[in-house]
């Protein structure tokens, strides 16, 4: 199966990881957001058929949360990386 390159550990079988969902930043100030926008944050998703960014957790490994850029139609992993700065989400 898919080899997922963990930024710490290198390419490992995808079975070692847990999927964390598409990248979906949490509003930094939740109270400032109106009900509709908050509902969108909680429930609505881009669910892109194509290239998107998503979270992975190295569950049976180093415990790192990292991002991957993957084409969801082919499962091709374009790159994996750590967020540039703490993302607050």
């Amino acid at each position: 199966m898919l080899l997922l390159p963990c930024p710490n550990c290198g390419p490992r079988n995808v079975a070692e990881f847990r999927y964390g969902g598409e990248m979906h930043p949490r509003p930094p100030a939740p109270e400032a957001v109106d009900d509709e926008a908050w509902t969108d944050f909680i429930y609505m998703r881009a669910n892109k058929a194509g290239r998107h960014r998503e979270w992975w957790y190295h569950h049976r490994g180093c415990g790192l949360w990292f991002l991957a850029e993957r084409d969801t139609t082919t499962n091709t992993i374009l790159r994996t990386y750590l967020p540039a700065q703490p993302h607050g989400s």
Binding site: Y57, W65, P86, G88
Partner: peptide
């Protein structure tokens, strides 16, 4: 917890 910790908290 690791998620939120690594997220910046």
């Amino acid at each position: 917890m690791q998620w939120w910790a690594q997220a910046g908290w």
